Amino acid sequence: MKAIIHGDQGLRLGEMPEPAAKSGEVVVAIKTAGLNRRDLYIPERRGHKGHDLVLGSDGAGVIESIGEGVTKWSVGDEVLVNPSLNWFEKSDGSPDGFGPLGMPDDGTFAEKIVLSEEQLEKRPGYLTWEESATIALAGLTGYRALVTRGNVKKGDTVFVPGAGSGVVTFIIQFAEAIGARVIVTSRSAEKREHALKLGADRAIDTNADWNEELKDETIDLVIESVGKATFNRSLECLKKGGRLVVFGATTEDVIDLDLRELFNKQQEIIGSMMGSRDELREMLAFAEKHNIRPVIDQTIPLDDAIKGFNMLEDSTQFGKIVFTI
């Protein structure tokens, strides 16, 4: 089967053996798959050593075959992949055995994938195939950061540096549906405009003086994923007693922190990463109730997937990149 593979020959379109379902497993014929930033970083971290690995965490498709003992699914069911492996119940932290799909296990950038029946959810009927392939990882990550860990409430003001990522496009929509005020940043005037159309209340230039721009705002919650480039600036904007949730670092992830400033302001710094199946199901129900849809920048055939990786590396996209298979 065709797949986007990383191995000794680097990142490439290649061939992999078709998977077969063992007991408790199903084979899904993938129709669409969503590109995430972790797919960009895995080749960098692996280098050019190791076995061939199929990348990809997000996907949607049709069940092609089922293994012995499978009771939840039938051949022909339309499903989306839960990329949060072995984390089923909501908890403060992820359990032992948790890991995102796509390393070390083969992922979704292939014509077929084999998974435990526990790692699938019914495809939301109100979404297109392309939208279905992009809601799980980014939507779950944003929902846990904003709702579970951030404890956002109606009337809160949420500040989110960076406006173009798939996760942030969900955070904007989730916060708006809850009744929170949302402020985002971007160096790109075009991305700021997109964010405002999506539901952000304000969109400011990343290069601006945030303290000056936000002097009349009370920031209750910051959602950070940029890293060193913005982290301390975000803390400066956060109110006394406010919460900063960090779910990633697209720039350098080692920072210098003024602890005296932190405890004087009695601020909270909270880590967050993906989420449980409980939260995925909560998020999917919430999204359907409020008609929240993934924002898709580009749809690309799997044969041209490397083009999508290059776009993501350059951060030219607003929203998600989808591969059709």
Rank of each mutant, 00 (worst) to 15 (best):
N310R: 11
F231S: 04
S234G: 14
S65R: 11
P104S: 12
K228A: 15
E217D: 14
G248I: 02
D304E: 14
K307A: 12
A208Y: 06
E44P: 01
R123I: 02
S188E: 08
K122C: 03
D253F: 03
G14P: 03
E268K: 15
G99L: 10
I63P: 05
V114E: 04
G162T: 09
R38D: 04
R293Y: 10
F318L: 10
Y143A: 00
A195T: 06
T185E: 00
R293F: 10
E193P: 00
G199W: 06
R243I: 14
E288Q: 12
I292C: 08
R123V: 00
F88C: 06
P100C: 12
L312C: 05
V246Q: 07
L221G: 03
E190S: 12
G107P: 06
T32F: 09
G102A: 11
I204H: 01
T108G: 01
A33H: 03
A249F: 00
V28H: 03
G47A: 05
T250S: 13
N211I: 11
S272Q: 06
M1N: 12
E78G: 01
I63K: 03
P19N: 03
I325M: 13
I113Q: 05
G164N: 12
G107E: 04
L127M: 14
K90R: 15
V70T: 05
E78Y: 01
L259I: 14
L11A: 00
D156W: 02
V79H: 04
M274C: 13
F174K: 00
R46P: 06
R37S: 09
V28C: 03
K72A: 14
A203Q: 04
Y41E: 14
R144I: 01
I292V: 10
W87F: 10
W129G: 03
P95L: 08
Y143I: 03
S272G: 06
W210H: 06
G155L: 05
R123Q: 06
G59I: 08
R37L: 05
T169E: 02
G56T: 10
E111P: 05
G308M: 01
A145F: 04
S116M: 11
G50D: 01
K90G: 13
F109G: 04
N232F: 08
K112T: 08
P17E: 11
T134R: 02
V167K: 00
T324L: 04
T32Y: 11
I270S: 08
S276T: 14
D105I: 03
L140E: 09
E190V: 13
F309R: 06
N82K: 01
I178W: 04
K22R: 13
L198D: 02
I292G: 09
T141P: 02
R202F: 13
F231R: 02
I292K: 06
E279P: 07
S272K: 05
G34M: 02
T299I: 14
G319F: 03
E78R: 11
I204T: 09
R45Q: 14
E176D: 11
F318G: 05
F309A: 05
K122M: 08
